[in-house]
Design a binder for these strands. Sequence first.
DNA 1: AACTCGTGGCA
DNA 2: TTGCCAAGAGT
Length: 370
Amino acid sequence: MDDGDKLTKAARAKAGRIGRALLAWYDVSRRDLPWRAAPGASVDPYAVWLSEIMLQQTTVKAAIPYFKTFLRRWPSVGALASAKRDEVMSAWAGLGYYSRARNMHEAATIVARDFDGQFPDTLDELLALPGVGPYTAAAIVAIAFDGRAAVVDGNVERVLARLFALTTPMPAAKGLARQIAEQLAPSQRPGDFAQAMMDLGATVCTPKRPECGSCPLGKLCGARAAGLSAVLPYREAKRAKPQRTGQAYFAMTPDGAVLLRRRTDKGLLGGMMEVPSSGWNSATNQANGDAPIEGAWRLLPGTVRHTFTHFHLELEVYCLEPDRRARPELGPNCEGWRWVSRRDLSAEALPSLMRKVIAHALAQLDREAA
DNA sequence: AACTCGTGGCA
DNA sequence: TTGCCAAGAGT
């Protein structure tokens, strides 16, 4: 018998007690979140799906305003499917992981066209939708349809690693956590159970300084018994982020039009707008070889720093003030370009990095003018 | 299987 | 200031 068998047998034995204690806790401490229906009320699967996509690797606080905006602007999956993708990308700007927005729009068209606007209620059908993986499919089944499914996100992995004192470091212990979650998923109130596990992880069994004193599962917790609550789950060390550099080219005409271009769908910031930029491995001061239009570009003081998931970036910002809206070179990895009035920039699909670049350039120009 | 893919808040 | 990481999916 290996560790996995022992653990899943332990999970079966503890499952009933865990489920009862967790649901009792959830009934009194349930958080009121915008995508949650009142207790006992039915939920709109579209709203559940929308929230779950937004919550992938994203904090509740960051997702809430976007969720409200999307649901108000596109109240049904059919409405979202009918939207232009550009509008969706603009509305998503700032939330990050932009493939989510691209996949979400495509999935909406599939549900509208192939499922008559009704979300499917099986794992297999949900998994076939772009942007819906094991977690999101299970979450929709459990929360929207109250079906039994193992909902395993980062919160659940952490809670289970502590509850069952899993000392294998992450991510190697993910499979074990999933096996346990399969055993724990109840047939009664599976949606509430899933949300209770995630709420517990978000508010009590937190990554740092868990509040074990107020935990409804304290008496059942292996980590607490072993004095490991604060150190589990173990994690493998992460690689250091490399430093990359590049140049951005900010062009603005006298009437306040700024040159933007659209990145291709593939890769970082795919499908989003950008201030024309060099690649991001380039050495500094490469004589403006990547400038989108001819002219006497000048380097603005200071730089823009930004950190992505796997590297740091420092951009130099060059500036040009051409007298007309010249036609630019498209540049690599781009699909199109246009001049955008300064006051219309807020409505563009500009990721946070590019908003930083624009803010930096405008601040420097304003300083010069003063 | 390991890597890519954003952002902002927090210690 | 720097590193950590949050309701993961796609390749």
